[in-house]
Structures are given as C-alpha cells and as structure tokens.
C-alpha cells in the first residue's frame, strides 16, 4: 500500500504517543470533544437497541412479520374453537353418564327393596295375630299377604325375622306354622310398609283378615296398628338363578 507521506521513524511514533499521553496539547481538546460525541452515540445505540427490537426493521419486514403474527393468530383461534367443541362434547358426555349412573342407582334402590336384599323403613301397619287355638292355616296367612300386597304394601316382614319376597312360602310342618322355614308360634306379627290408611282398610273389610281370624273358624284376635316409622331390618340372600338369564 502506498503511503501518502514519508513515515517518521518508528521509534519516533511511540515516543510521540507517549509524549502526547503525558503532556497533551491543546489541539487534543477538540479531538476529545468529538470522541465524547462518538462514545455518547455508541452507548445511545447500545442502550436503545435493547428495548426497541423493531425500530430498525424496514417496512416490508414489518409487514411480513405482521402477516406471520396474524396467520399464527388465526391458526390459534381455530385451535381454540376446536378445543372448545371437544370440551363441550366431553362435558355433555360426562353429564349424561352421571345421569345414567343416578338412574341406575335409583333402580338399584327400588330393586333392592323389591327383592328384599336391603333393610327398609317407612310408614305402615303392624298386624298382631294371636292364635291361641292353633287354628291358623297357611292359606289364611297367604291370603293376608296377598290382601296387603293388593293394598300397596311394598315391604313386608313376619315376626321381625322373615322378609316376605317373591319366593316366600307358608306351610304347616308337624302341626306348626312356618314361613320360609321359620316357626311362627301362636303370636304372628306382620309388618307392612305402605300407605297406613289403605293397608289398615284392607285388613278390616268384611270377609277380610280381621273378620276371618276373629270369626268362628279361627277364634283368635287380630290387632292392627298404624305406625309412623316402621323399620324392617331382616333381609334375604338372593339366590343366583340357575336357568334365567337377563334378556
């Protein structure tokens, strides 16, 4: 590279630098002012560049970035819509399955009462039959139970021990009345949950339970009491059907 002016001796250069560093001339003041502006400008750029990422971009770059952001926003909005639809579907699914579960539980309660596998309580009547002469027959008891069922008895129990369900039976074994294999003795207590008035009416009509038992054939006594809150604790173990299957 051609040098425009004849170079001073190299030692001379370092010596001049040292001299000017130690004893600055006045002309350096102007250089100092200019360099001050220079340093100021550099820090200005460095500090300004930190928080203004987009100010140095040109218009077309900004337009492209804006397009990108808008496309991204549209994509995300579509995603939001999709997710909301999914959420609604899941929510309605959860609600309907909860509904089905509740219905199943209600059916289970009803079937447990009907099948006699769960204890029950409610208003009803208590029929106390005293049969000193021992002339009660299974037929009379069966008729009594049928009458009570007709009158809307939902849960029935004999002597606080035998829950009457679909396969209950009455019989005379060795001259003793039995229900589902349990001896009944001379005092038979039948408890029935249902509308107390209807039930007690059903026992009192002419030719019904009370008149049959207090008539000449049996010669016993029958007392009917309406009870506000009857508790029936006895249950039966359901037998697994051998032949029937749910259809």
């Amino acid at each position: 590279m051609p040098e425009p002016t004849p170079a001073p001796a190299p030692d001379n250069a370092w010596a001049r630098i040292r001299k000017d560093l130690l004893k600055p001339s006045r002309s350096q003041l102007i250089v100092a002012v200019v360099l001050l502006l220079f340093g100021f400008a550099i820090t200005l750029q460095l500090s300004g560049g930190r928080d203004q990422r987009y100010t140095n971009l040109r218009q077309d770059e900004l337009v492209a970035m804006l397009d990108d952001v808008q496309a991204e926003a549209r994509r995300l909005e579509g995603e939001i819509t999709q997710l909301e639809v999914t959420r609604q579907r899941l929510q309605s699914g959860a609600e309907s399955s909860a509904e089905a579960r509740e219905q199943a539980l209600r059916r289970l309660d009803a079937l447990e009462l009907l099948g006699g596998t769960a204890p029950a309580q409610g208003p009803g009547i208590r029929v106390t039959i005293t049969d000193r002469a021992g002339k009660m027959t299974p037929e009379i008891l069966l008729n009594t139970v049928e009458e009570l069922r007709d009158a809307g008895a939902e849960v029935m129990e004999v002597n606080d021990a035998v829950r009457l369900v679909t396969d209950s039976w009455f019989a005379t074994v060795d001259g003793q009345l039995q229900a589902d294999g349990v001896r009944l003795g001379s005092t038979i207590v039948i408890e029935a949950i249902g509308d107390p008035e209807t039930l007690s009416e059903a026992t009192r009509f002419r030719g019904g339970l009370v008149s049959t038992i207090e008539g000449e054939r049996v010669g016993g006594t029958a007392r009917v009491v309406e009870v506000e809150d009857l508790v029936i604790d006895s249950v039966v173990d359901p037998e697994t059907p051998r032949f029937a299957r749910p259809g």
Binding site: L22, V34, L35, L36, G39, I42, T43, L46
Partner: peptide, 16 residues
C-alpha cells in the same frame, strides 16, 4: 490524553 478522557466521559454520560 484528553482524547481518551473525552471518549471515557462520552461513554460514561451515555450509560448514566
């Protein structure tokens, strides 16, 4: 010397 001092002052001012 003044030149270096000026540069330093300028940078310092900018930072401050």
């Amino acid at each position: 010397m003044y030149a270096i001092i000026g540069l330093a002052i300028g940078i310092g001012l900018g930072i401050l």
